[in-house]
Design a protein around this nucleic acid. Structure first.
Length: 640
DNA sequence: CTTAGGG
DNA sequence: CCCTAAG
């Protein structure tokens, strides 16, 4: 059996409660009772009591009058707000309160029994709630529990209760409501809109109501108007509101549940529909209701959300899932059928995201901020204790509603999908203001360029042609002043980074807007030779080939670079060679710049000449081999 | 991506 | 070296 929590109606025992002092509230005390299968109540065990007490203590603070007031207002607004997008603000406050409540409830739920709580708590309790929403449901004790979970109370009811205890006015209302089962929820008094619950009273089969009546009922239940004309939906909503459960079935819903509850309960809670207060379950229920109304924007979808959440929560809490699930499915299906699917709006989505983000609680996450607000609140209440795990689970995904169906969507999906900026590499690149080969290497590596760096570094030896100029004895060793380093041997120079490079690098980094300018690298004699050789082999225009084969080690030389360089070489060869005799560099005599060795130029020239010719012939191909060799032979004598 | 060319 | 147009 389960221990059912029963709340005892007000009790005066509370004694020194604030409430009493205020006089406004009827002190309600929860009594923890174990419900036997036969329905008899049994005094709680000490353990049970203890467990509950803890919760109570925590709660006690919560219900301060002020808080309560806020809560109430909040709820009140809630109804109204729910409709409108802008009601967010109200929530924050509520949440706090809500949490508290939730905790309590949770606690209660967990324990599954109520214990005579401290006086401090006054929750109007009412009778045990046995809901018969579902016809299907079994009626065993278990059922009861389930139902409670599933069904339950509206958040409002919860609130109301609190408020009642706290506020005088409300109290009155509460008391009234309590007294008059018939009376509409006192809430009305609080709420701007005064729902007329009368319609709900009694056992009325929603099925028999007209849309209009249903709408009225809806209004009575949620305190707000609805334009929805979907009977099914309305029925559901109403039922849900009344019962607080998700399980409501579209058809065959009878208000009587509500009613029953009312009857049992001494007070009707002003809550939305006058939901019974089985506080315990109420917790979970509360959520539902809130959601319902809130979500509702007259949209069926809301209910979906809820249902899921509810189910979950209830399941979690009680471990009873079956009924709920079924009901859920039913609801969803029905709704889905009834209404068109609704796609989340961008805004909606955004809101959701935000909400989720905000809620550390995680769970809340669901649906939209706003919509969810109510839910959130409720959830928190419910969740805190037990839902932890759920939270963790939930976290990764967010629920969205699609066409009324809740769907878990990975948060990630919402995130921007853009691919990572490809530039980031560039940035890396920029870097090396300093020259560290390492950095470069790293960069290059990252870039995926040829892995040359290694070579580069080690072989970097080469001196910029310009500078070295002639030196080459066979290799380029010279170092010019410029480099600052002297490369003794080509091989060695590892650090041949020239100051220039550095400077340039920086420059480019700074200069280039987004793109950094490629690090300037002077062409070394060896590079030129390779280039020439490459051209000789593959022919001009085969830059990519040359680059691949001949410049494997120079990752920083692109085919474009080769092409450019070649162009420059050609130019040079033409100008220099011809006037060659001058021997001097035409344009500058600048010492720093060392002209490309004539030998090379010669080769270039030859190639240039050959190529074209060859090109014509297509001999280029064949040629290439020969030419290259030839070229080598000649000019290079020692180059390659 | 590779070439060609202009800047 | 960069940039762009054109395959």
């Amino acid at each position: 059996m389960e221990v059912e929590t029963l709340q005892d109606a007000e009790e005066t025992k509370n004694g020194g409660n604030d409430f009493e002092e205020n006089g406004s509230l009827d002190p309600v005390v929860y009594q923890l009772v174990r419900v036997e299968g036969d329905g008899t109540l049994v005094p709680p065990t000490e353990d049970e009591v203890l467990q509950i007490e803890q919760f109570l203590d925590d709660k006690v603070d919560l219900p301060s009058i002020d808080d309560v007031g806020n809560v109430e207002d909040f709820f009140t607004n809630d109804c109204m707000l729910l409709k409108e997008p802008d009601f967010e603000e109200g929530y924050s406050e509520l949440e706090t309160n809500g949490e508290i409540h939730t905790q309590q409830f949770d606690a209660d739920l967990e324990v599954d029994r109520l214990k005579p709580s401290d006086d401090s708590l006054d929750i109007p309790s009412k009778c045990t709630v046995v809901h018969d929403h579902k016809p299907d449901t079994e009626q065993g004790d278990n059922n009861i529990v389930h139902q409670d979970n599933a069904s339950t109370e509206t958040p409002k009811s919860t609130v109301l209760n609190d408020s009642c205890s706290a506020e005088k006015e409300k109290t009155d209302a509460c008391s009234r409501s309590v007294n008059n089962s018939s009376t509409g929820p006192s809430v009305s008094g609080v709420t701007s809109s005064v729902p007329d619950f009368s319609i709900l009273r009694g056992e009325v089969s929603l099925d028999n109501l007209t849309i209009r009546e249903l709408q009225e009922a809806f209004r009575a239940t949620f305190g707000r108007e609805t334009t929805v004309k979907d009977k099914l939906w309305l029925k559901r909503r109403i039922t849900m509101g009344l019962t607080n459960s998700c399980d409501v079935q579209s058809s065959g819903c009878v208000v009587k549940d509500y009613k029953i509850v009312c009857k049992d309960a001494k007070h009707e809670l002003p809550t939305i529909g006058g939901i019974p207060k089985a506080e315990v379950e109420a917790t979970s229920l509360v959520r539902y209701q809130v959601l319902g109304p809130g979500n509702e924007r007259d949209t069926p979808s809301c209910s979906y959300y809820r249902s899921e959440d509810q189910q979950r929560s209830s399941n979690r809490l009680k471990g009873v899932s079956t009924d709920n699930d079924e009901s859920e499915g039913t609801l969803q299906d029905e709704q889905g059928a009834a209404k068109r699917l609704r796609k989340p709006t961008k805004r909606y989505i955004e809101e959701l995201s935000d909400t989720e983000t905000l809620d550390s609680t995680g769970k809340l996450s669901s649906p939209g901020k706003r919509v969810a607000h109510g839910e959130v609140l409720l959830r928190q209440r419910v969740t805190p204790l037990q839902e932890v795990d759920s939270l963790s689970i939930t976290y990764p995904t967010r629920k969205d509603t699609f066409g009324g169906f809740s769907v878990h969507v990975p948060y990630a999906s919402r995130m921007r999908r853009g691919r990572p900026r490809r530039n980031f590499i560039s940035f890396l690149d920029d870097d090396p203001p300093v020259e560290c080969p390492e950095v470069q290497m790293a960069v290059e590596t990252m870039l995926g360029k040829d892995g040359e760096h290694v070579n580069h570094a080690s072989s970097a030896v080469e001196v910029p042609l310009t500078k070295n100029a002639e030196k080459k004895g066979g290799h380029i060793e010279t170092a010019e002043k410029k480099g600052g380093h002297i490369e003794t041997a080509d091989n060695k120079e590892i650090h041949s980074i020239e100051p220039e490079d550095i400077c340039r690098t920086d420059a480019k980094t700074k200069t280039k807007r987004g793109l950094k300018r490629k690090h300037h690298r002077a062409w070394t004699l060896s590079e030129v030779l390779k280039l020439v050789d490459g051209v000789a082999q593959f022919g001009p225009g085969k830059w990519s080939e040359i680059r691949r084969l001949s410049f494997a080690s120079y990752s920083y030389r692109t085919s474009v670079d080769l092409k450019d360089k070649w162009r420059n070489l050609l130019r040079a060869s033409q100008t220099q060679l011809s006037p060659e005799n001058d021997g001097v560099c035409p344009r500058k005599s600048n010492p720093s710049i060392i002209p490309i060795p004539p030998a090379i130029l010669l080769r270039v020239k030859e190639l240039a000449e050959l190529q074209p010719q060859a090109g014509n012939l297509a001999a280029a191909i064949k040629f290439s081999g020969q030419s290259s060799k030839a070229a080598q032979g000649r000019g290079s004598s020692g180059f390659l």
